Computed example of a mutant assay.
Amino acid sequence: MTNTTNVATNSADIVAVSAMGAIVNPAFSALPAEPYRLKSDGTAFLWPTFGGIVYNVSTGDSAFGWSGDCIHPSVSIAHADANKNRGLNVFACVGNIATIVSGAAKGAKGIVTGKSGRFSDQVIVHFDMETRRKLAVDDKIMVRAEGVGMSLPEHPDVSMKSLSPALFDLLPKKAEDGVLKIGVTGIVPPHFVGAGAGLTSEGGSLHIQSTDRATLKDLGLDALRLGDVVAFQDTDSRYNHGYLRGAMSIGIVGQTDGPRAGYGPGCTIVMTAPSGQLGCYDAPNTNIAPLLEIVQ
């Protein structure tokens, strides 16, 4: 069991609300006419990408090595109405319970493990393998969305993002000299921040660039797993993601690596602070799969 210090939250005041989505089909843009994408070296590739039901990649597995482009483990959901999908993407939080409400697996429960898609347009939900085999594209899934509005009375400068109160309580953490420190598996320097920079921090993902494999290994980031907790140095994610010296953001790896320049494992940011109020410490193997007792 990971050692953690209790940190007070306003959990009694947080509103839990339903948010509906349906399993989405993997898709390609209508243009360009060909489906190929380009690797960082300029060569073309055609691999599976995000969306659909993924039968053999789960939270807890390696974030690297798959013949896929930013794969979402398990299941990706969205709402067909753009405004309603925005509500789903903003209000769903990592660690929320999701219930299947239609189809052959009706009644089965899963756990939100990330947010992603091209522009914050999908939510990632883990279901065990037996449940996945019963699912179909367009099956409806209801998320008990709880976490938006969470704050820390003793650490008011730390902004909470897309994180359920239950998962926050489980994360390894400690408070030292007024600084909230989170246990992480790795630290991402600012020059390794990739796709997602400049976009909203209320949904979607922030990517760890992985084109430079030698430096990735030197940083100890080449062994990251889906579900690992990581820190982003000098990254301010209060309203969107951007460089700010002294800032820090904490993320959870939600999707796999990909071969395109500027991409790599995609992370859902769950907390951030602008000037030293948030820190981190080395806590190897900190991963939401064992914390949430995720069943493969």
Results as ranks from 00 to 15, higher is better:
Thr4Ala: 13
Ala8Leu: 14
Ala12Asn: 09
Ile14Gln: 08
Ile14Tyr: 03
Ala22His: 11
Pro26Phe: 00
Ala27Gly: 03
Pro32Glu: 13
Pro48Ala: 05
Thr49Pro: 01
Thr49Arg: 13
Tyr55Val: 10
Tyr55Pro: 07
Ser58Pro: 04
Ser62Glu: 07
Trp66Cys: 04
Ser74Ala: 01
Ala78Thr: 12
Arg86Tyr: 13
Gly87Cys: 06
Leu88Asn: 09
Val90Phe: 03
Thr99Ile: 09
Ile100Asp: 07
Gly103Ile: 07
Gly107Val: 13
Gly107Gln: 13
Val112Asp: 01
Val123Ile: 11
Ile124His: 01
Glu130Arg: 11
Thr131Gly: 10
Thr131Pro: 02
Arg133Cys: 09
Lys134Ser: 11
Leu135Pro: 05
Asp138Gly: 03
Arg144Asn: 14
Gly149Pro: 09
Asp157Gln: 10
Lys161Asp: 08
Pro165Asp: 06
Lys173Cys: 04
Lys173Met: 04
Gly178Ala: 02
Leu180Trp: 07
Val184Ile: 12
Thr185Ser: 13
Ile187Ser: 05
Pro189Gln: 03
Val193Trp: 00
Gly196His: 01
Ala197Tyr: 11
Gly198His: 13
Leu199Thr: 09
Thr200Asp: 00
Ser201Arg: 11
Ser205Lys: 01
Leu206Ser: 12
Ile208Lys: 07
Gln209Ala: 11
Lys217Leu: 08
Asp218Thr: 08
Gly220His: 00
Leu221Lys: 03
Arg225Lys: 15
Gly227Val: 03
Val229His: 02
Asp236Phe: 07
Ser237Thr: 14
Arg238Val: 03
Tyr243Trp: 13
Ala247Asn: 06
Gly254Lys: 03
Gln255Ile: 01
Pro259Lys: 12
Gly262Ser: 12
Tyr263Val: 12
Pro265Gln: 02
Pro265Phe: 01
Ile269Leu: 09
Gly276Phe: 00
Gln277Asn: 06
Asp282Arg: 06
Asp282Cys: 07
Leu291Tyr: 03
Glu293Ala: 15
Glu293Pro: 07
Ile294Ser: 04
